[in-house]
Simulated assay, not measured.
Amino acid sequence: MSGGGSESARTTYVLVDGENIDATLGASVFGRRPNPEERPRWERLLTYAEAQWGQPVSGLFFLAVKDELPMSFVQALISIGYRPVPLRGGPAEKVVDIAIQRTLEALRDRDDDVVLVSNDGDFIPQMEQLVGTRRVGQMAFQEFRNAGFRALEARGLEFLDLEYDVNAFKTRLPRIRVLAIEEFDPADFL
């Protein structure tokens, strides 16, 4: 582990790229914009990370804001335990990606763990620098995450599927994935 802090002082930072998860649901899972009830129950990500890693969590939810702050969404995030990080930038800037990359870089100097909630390969260089120095995880969709993350698993990256491991959705998603024969249940297809 990095640094010299005590284990009890460790925190797991859960960094959420909500736009990426929403875009994946829309483009790859549903083929349309997901309805509110089809989106993740964001509080379940925090609960899962805290229970599985056995230490306090701090959720940072990054969102791009054009003109007005979406107050109802921001208030909902705060009420379930996230610290919203609203960002604005130029029209071509990927402000959420830039902010998450900077946050991952800043975590190198801290004695904390991290879970990235995104399928986006733009974060691989920063995640690569953290893997092996602390506990590092990725919550995403197995079949839609950037292939570069798979190489990091051999070095210690923990992958957590949002639906199957974290149970972040109220209902089963219409995903097509390769099943291990032990997981196959004919009732799921009948």
Rank of each mutant, 00 (worst) to 15 (best):
L69M: 12
P186W: 06
I181A: 14
M1C: 06
A99S: 09
D22N: 15
Q126K: 13
R32S: 15
G132I: 11
L87P: 13
A27T: 10
L45C: 06
Q129N: 10
A168K: 03
L60V: 01
T103G: 02
F169Y: 00
D185V: 12
A147W: 10
Q101D: 05
T103Q: 08
G18P: 10
A106Y: 13
V95T: 08
A147T: 14
E143N: 12
T171S: 13
F159H: 06
L77N: 01
V57Q: 05
D109W: 14
E183P: 00
S8G: 01
R102C: 12
Q55H: 14
E182Y: 02
R135E: 06
R39F: 03
Y13S: 02
P70Q: 07
R108M: 09
G90Q: 08
L179E: 15
I176F: 08
V74E: 04
R44H: 10
L104M: 08
Y13I: 03
I100S: 08
F73A: 08
L162D: 04
A106P: 14
A154T: 12
T11L: 14
E37D: 10
E50V: 03
Q138P: 00
E93C: 08
A140K: 02
R88Y: 13
P86N: 09
F149D: 09
D22Y: 06
F149Y: 11
A151Y: 13
L63Q: 07
P34L: 02
S6M: 15
P36K: 00
E153W: 13
I98V: 13
Q142A: 15
G26A: 10
D122A: 10
V166E: 03
G156F: 10
N35R: 12
Y48M: 05
A180D: 15
L69W: 12
A106W: 12
A92G: 04
L60I: 01
V166C: 04
R39M: 07
A51Y: 11
P70F: 10
L190C: 04
A187P: 07
Q129F: 04
G81D: 00
E19S: 15
F61W: 14
G3Y: 10
F123R: 01
V117W: 06
F169S: 09
G26M: 02
G156M: 07
A154W: 12
L60M: 08
V74R: 07
P91K: 00
R145G: 06
R150D: 15
F144N: 13
R10V: 01
L104E: 01
Y164G: 13
E50C: 05
G90C: 07
T103E: 04
R150F: 11
R135T: 03
E158N: 01
G5D: 10
V136S: 00
A147Q: 15
V85A: 07
T24M: 02
A49R: 04
D97K: 01
A76Q: 11
L46K: 10
R172E: 06
Q142C: 07
L104C: 10
T171L: 07
G5I: 09
V14H: 00
I21G: 12
Y13F: 11
G132F: 03
G156W: 09
V96H: 03
T47N: 06
R150H: 14
P125K: 05
K94F: 12
